[in-house]
Design a protein around this nucleic acid. Structure first.
Lengths: 233, 233
DNA sequence: CAAACGCGCATTTTCGAAAATCATACCGTT
DNA sequence: AACGGTATGATTTTCGAAAATGCGCGTTTG
């Protein structure tokens, strides 16, 4: 197997451009590239080992997702953050996620229930293993994302799922923004458990109410602990 | 003025890539490039007069908007159409547009009212001038888009407006798809007038109901008259 | 005869150099 | 000293050639 020996440069997707898009997205969400940071081609070229054009393609895709700002003839920069944007993302998430939860509860079959239960189980196991600073654990982030994805996966609309995924990414960036200043993570395990139970027992109204609270309280937390980062823009 | 003499290649935006993106988008929406059509670089290169890389950037952006399908290592093609996709786009539009109309009615000021009234006025004048086949008239298309844009423009969320714009484009492509087979356009002028009046008089429930009917009946029309194009995919 | 392999062509994808554009500092004039 | 214009350097944007990849066809093999 020569691939593993030669150390392939592409780890996600088949094309280098798709791989770079993925890696850049992760870095921006994790605030490794902070909001407002200029994305100069020289720097990116060195860091990601790709050419101008390939990087340009990746940045264009991320600009369409709202994670990068494209200023024509003056390059790209990481999308800036603001209280207004946080409110918009939060409201849009509530609007869409509430609808998708209702549809999934109405349409979900056995496989859906299994997916919800098993992704929550994995999330809880990871939380037990290392209960502090979950956002710094890549495995927790993936498991957390997959649980919320599973909840809405039976909605039947790929279109709305794609929109939801974009908004989830933008919200996760705000969570990372405040993670370094938040004294202790609040008890999300209980919230996730309650959401799962409401969904599985097909109690749509309760599930919707719990999800909305979950999203809004997380956003409130960000607004509180990242206040100094949101007002100076 | 040398620019007008030399005939500038960029007509929209400052960069060639943004210009090509805009022109490609228009052609795809108008079905000048039919659904499923492979987008080979040789052909596009000749038609748009740009290089591989610039075209690639434009196609990547349109793929993020859902108007182009990117198949890694196997090129791009115009996004295919289907009954399922039409239903998804329609449902998503209703969900979002209804919310934005409510917010605009709640928040709209004098400028908003003026924008709604004046864009409708222009739309009606264009319809009087040439009452048949409105979709073939570029001016009607622009005026129609601007009226619907004005209705929701006071919602206060750039995030949701961007999502709405993407869905509007995807829906407009379906309208073009059926335009050639629809015997006669139904009376949209009356619907637009009623929506305007409900919005201006701040009757949110009525406006929401009219908008939903407007969107769904248009989609039903497409599903009927473009049925042969939707089932053979 | 069917299936699998390898070769060659068509097409996409990537690259770095060259052109275009923007930002800044410098200079001369008022 | 303030202002306008211009040269210069830094950066982005565009280009076409070169490399990589997929696809179809013909050949071989079981």
């Amino acid at each position: 197997m020569p691939e593993s020996a030669i150390r392939p440069r592409k780890e996600f997707g088949k094309t280098i451009a798709a791989d770079i898009t993925h890696r850049l997205r992760e870095e921006i969400i994790a605030c490794g590239l902070p909001p407002g940071e200029p994305l100069r081609f020289d720097v990116l070229r060195e860091r990601f080992g790709a050419s101008f054009t390939t990087l340009r393609e990746a940045l264009t895709a991320l600009a369409a997702e709202g994670l990068v700002d494209a200023q024509e003839q003056r390059g790209f920069r990481v999308a800036s953050v603001s209280r207004q944007d946080l409110v918009e993302v939060t409201d849009a998430r509530v609007l869409i996620e509430v609808e998708l939860i209702r549809r999934s509860i109405a349409r979900g079959d056995d496989d859906w229930e299994i997916a919800v239960i098993s992704t929550l189980h994995r999330l809880k196991r990871i939380e037990q293993r290392d209960p502090e600073h979950p956002l710094r654990d890549p495995e927790w982030k993936i498991a957390h994302r997959q649980f919320h994805q599973a909840l809405v996966s039976a909605c039947g609309s790929a279109t709305l799922l794609a929109i939801r995924a974009e908004l989830f990414d933008r919200a996760e960036r705000y969570r990372h923004l405040s993670a370094n200043f938040r004294p202790r993570p609040r008890d999300k395990a209980g919230e996730h458990q309650a959401i799962m139970q409401a969904a599985i027992s097909r109690n749509a109204d309760l599930a919707v109410q719990l999800i909305e609270t979950h999203i809004r309280s997380t956003a409130d937390n960000v607004a509180t602990y990242a206040a100094h980062l949101l007002d100076t823009e």
